[in-house]
Design a protein around this nucleic acid. Structure first.
Length: 122
DNA sequence: GTTGTGACATCGC
DNA sequence: CGCGATGCCACAA
């Protein structure tokens, strides 16, 4: 059913996730999986396990994020906003940043997806 | 002590 | 290309 788990040190992991989210430029989106991949597995966590659950850990970390974070710039790998209370607000905030949704409610990650902190630009 | 439930990604049909 | 199954844990009530 629901394959969940938690990182060995949730507080630290959460702080790292927030730091990454804080660095996402306006008008760009980042995915849960990319955040997880950028952070890499915490000490003691096997690569395979992290690959399976890292993205969910990121999601959990964002569930309690401060309002000061641009949390709206984090979407799933399909370029969609994950269903949850506040999803409508998230879409509105992204549109306010100039991000366009297609007819299926998806964001074109090729165009708006952030390539990471070291990306050279658009 | 038991039960319900969570911001995901990937693969197969 | 969309939909369903799979992964297999910790915490709050």
């Amino acid at each position: 059913m629901s394959p969940f788990s938690r990182p060995p040190n949730p507080q630290v992991f959460q702080a790292q996730v927030w730091e990454v989210v804080r660095s996402i430029p306006a008008g760009r989106v980042y995915t849960y999986g990319q955040i997880a991949a950028q952070l890499g597995p915490p000490p003691g966590v096997e690569e395979s396990r992290y690959r399976a659950f890292g993205a969910r850990w990121v999601g959990s970390a964002l569930a309690a994020c401060p309002d000061s974070l641009p949390w709206q710039r984090v979407v799933n790998a399909q370029g969609k906003i994950s269903p949850r209370p506040g999803a409508d607000l998230q879409a509105a905030l992204l549109e306010a940043e100039g991000i366009i949704f297609d007819s299926q409610g998806r964001i074109d990650l090729q165009r708006y997806g952030w390539r990471g902190p070291e990306s050279q630009g658009p």
